[in-house]
Amino acid sequence: MDTLSPSGRSERMARVRNRDSKPEMLVRRIVHAMGFRYRLYDRRRPGTPDLAFSARRKAIFVHGCFWHRHPDPNCRLARMPKS
């Protein structure tokens, strides 16, 4: 059972960032500093990658701890939500 009202849940989910998150911005800065150029969120590519290198036929997906639940027991972000 959800503990929030539908409007409260909508407001909370609207705060979840799917673009320009801190980990993604860090990866973008590093890749750009290395001299690579890329396209952001290229919808022509399968899965809409965060960074797409068309000429190299490569893509980078930056996933956070919350959504992908990596097995690190010390990470406080990789946990099941209470509601």
Rank of each mutant, 00 (worst) to 15 (best):
T3V: 09
T3Y: 03
P6E: 07
P6K: 06
S7W: 11
R9I: 14
S10A: 05
E11W: 08
E11A: 12
R12I: 15
R12T: 12
R12V: 13
R12A: 13
R12S: 15
M13S: 01
V16Y: 10
V16P: 14
V16Q: 11
R17D: 14
N18K: 13
R19P: 01
R19S: 01
D20K: 07
S21C: 13
P23Y: 10
M25Y: 05
L26D: 09
V27D: 01
V27F: 04
R28V: 01
R29F: 01
I30E: 09
H32Q: 12
A33F: 13
F36T: 06
R37S: 00
D42M: 06
R43C: 04
R43Y: 08
R44F: 04
P46M: 04
T48A: 11
P49H: 05
P49Y: 11
D50W: 12
D50P: 09
D50Q: 12
D50A: 12
L51N: 05
A52V: 03
S54Y: 12
A55Y: 12
R56I: 06
I60A: 06
F61D: 04
F61W: 08
H63L: 10
H63N: 13
C65T: 14
C65W: 15
F66S: 15
F66A: 14
W67G: 13
W67M: 14
H68D: 08
